[in-house]
Design a protein around this nucleic acid. Structure first.
Lengths: 223, 223
DNA sequence: GCATCGACTTGAACACGTTCAATTGTTGAA
DNA sequence: TTCAACAATTGAACGTGTTCAAGTCGATGC
C-alpha cells in the first residue's frame, strides 16, 4: 500500500525538531539523540526517515528551494535589466535564509568537495541546481544586454557559480547585518553586468575566448 | 629542561605512522587506534603530541611548506617573466604534493570555513600563508609587467587566492594524471598575466577600481 | 477470529575521535 | 642514594553518528 499518513507525520515531526535544534544550538551541538527526544521518538527512528544527520539539512535545502520559487518570481517582476535582476535574485536568497544562516553554513561547509552529498556541486543536489540555473538562463533573456553567441550556453552556469561565491561569503560574513555581503552583492552585480556588456566588443574577443576555454576546462565540457 | 630526545622520536613515529596510513587508506578510513598501533603506542599517546587527528595533517602541511622552499627557489631560477614564474611556482606544489594528493584533499576539504583549523584561511595556518604570499610578492618584482600603483599592495594576496583555486581544482581533479589541472594552470597563468598587463591601460581604470573595491570588501581591508 | 505480512518503532550496541585519571619512567637537587 | 617534580605513557571511559536485531501495530486475506 501507499505510505501511511502516520509515517509522514512522524517524518515531519523529526524534520521540524531537527531544524529547530540546529537553529537554536547549531548543527554539531545538536545531537541526533536530542533531535529524537524533541520529536518524541527513539534515536533510531530518525534513521528510518533520514539516511544521515546531514541528509536532514539536504531536505531543508530542498524545501527552501521550493519555498523560494514564488519569492524569486515576485522579485524578478520588480526588477528590470540584468544588474537589477541578478541582485534581486540573490537578495531573495539572503532574505530567505537569513533566519537560518547557521544551518546553511553547515550545508556549505563541505561545499568544496563535489563528492560530499551536501555539496552544492554533488549529484544529490542536482535537481536543485538545475532549477536554480534555470533562473539564470531566464534573467539573461531580454535583459537589455547583448550576449555574445559563444558565451550564451556557458553564462547561466558561470552566473550560478558566481552566485554561490556571493552566498558563500554571506554565510561566513560576520560583519553586522552582513553589511559587507550586501555591499559585495551590489558591486558584484554591477561588475558582472559590465563585464558581460564589455565582452561583446570586438576588441575583447581574445579575452573572451581565453575565459571560455577556462570555463570549458573547469566544467569538463570538452573532455 | 628541554624536551627529551625520546619524546621527539615518539612524536616522529606517530606522525610517520599517521601519514603512512592516511596515504594508504585515506584520512577518514585510517583510525587513530590504527595510527597508535602502527606507531606502537597507546591510543591516547597520539593526543599527547597532537591536539587532534586533523592537527596531524596540519603538521604535514607545515612540513611540506618547509620542504618546498628550496624547490621553489630553484624553480624560479629557471623561470623568467611573470607568466612562467607563476606557472612554475604552482607546478612545484603540484609535483611536491602529487604522492599525497589524498592527504592534501583531506586538508582542503574544510578549506571553505575560515574558522576551521585546517582551512588555508584559518589563523592556525597564518604562518604558512605568509611565507607563501611572500613568494608572490617576490615574483612580481622586476617581472617585466608594469603593476599599477593601486593594485600593488593587493596583488600578492589575489594571486595567492588564485593559486588556492588552482590547487583546489587539482586536488579534486580526477582526469588521468590531472591533465585538466595542468591545462588549467597553463591557461590561467597566461590569462592572469594578460589581465595584469591590460589593467594598467588608462582605458581600464574604472574596471580596475571596481575590482579593487571588490577585493577590499572581501578582505575587509576598509572596515 | 486468526494468522500473516509489512510498515513502523525501539533501544542496545558499534566504531570513531577524544578525554583523563592513573601509572610509569626520568631527571636533577639534597 | 633518595626523593620530589615533571615528562611520557597507558587504556578505560565518554559522547557522538550510525546500525541492527528485535519488537509493535494495523491492515489484509482466510
Amino acid at each position: 500500500m501507499k505510505a501511511g499518513p502516520k509515517s509522514e507525520e512522524t517524518r515531519e515531526r523529526i524534520l521540524k525538531a531537527a531544524l529547530t535544534l540546529f537553529h537554536e544550538r547549531g548543527f554539531e551541538a545538536a545531537t541526533m539523540r536530542d533531535v529524537a527526544e524533541e520529536a518524541d521518538v527513539a534515536t533510531g527512528a530518525a534513521y528510518y526517515y533520514f539516511p544521515s544527520k546531514e541528509a536532514i539539512i539536504l531536505d531543508f535545502y530542498r524545501r527552501s528551494s521550493m519555498e523560494m520559487q514564488p519569492k524569486i518570481e515576485a522579485a524578478l517582476k520588480r526588477a528590470n535589466g540584468l544588474e537589477q535582476r541578478l541582485r534581486e535574485l540573490i537578495r531573495v536568497k539572503f532574505l530567505h535564509f537569513a533566519p537560518n544562516r547557521g544551518v546553511l553554513r553547515a550545508l556549505l561547509r563541505n561545499g568544496a568537495d563535489p563528492k560530499h552529498p551536501l555539496s552544492p556541486f554533488s549529484s544529490q543536489t542536482n535537481e536543485i541546481r538545475d532549477i536554480d540555473m534555470a533562473w539564470f538562463r531566464r534573467i539573461l533573456i531580454d535583459c537589455g544586454v547583448r550576449i555574445p553567441r559563444d558565451l550564451g550556453p556557458h553564462l547561466p552556469g558561470v552566473l550560478w557559480f558566481f552566485q554561490m561565491g556571493v552566498i558563500f561569503f554571506w554565510v561566513i560574513d560576520e560583519s553586522p547585518n552582513q553589511a559587507r555581503s550586501n555591499r559585495l552583492l551590489d558591486l558584484a552585480a554591477k561588475s558582472v553586468t559590465s563585464l558581460i556588456r564589455v565582452s561583446s566588443l570586438p576588441l575583447m574577443r581574445p579575452v573572451r575566448k581565453a575565459a571560455l576555454e577556462l570555463v570549458e576546462i573547469v566544467t569538463g565540457a570538452n573532455l
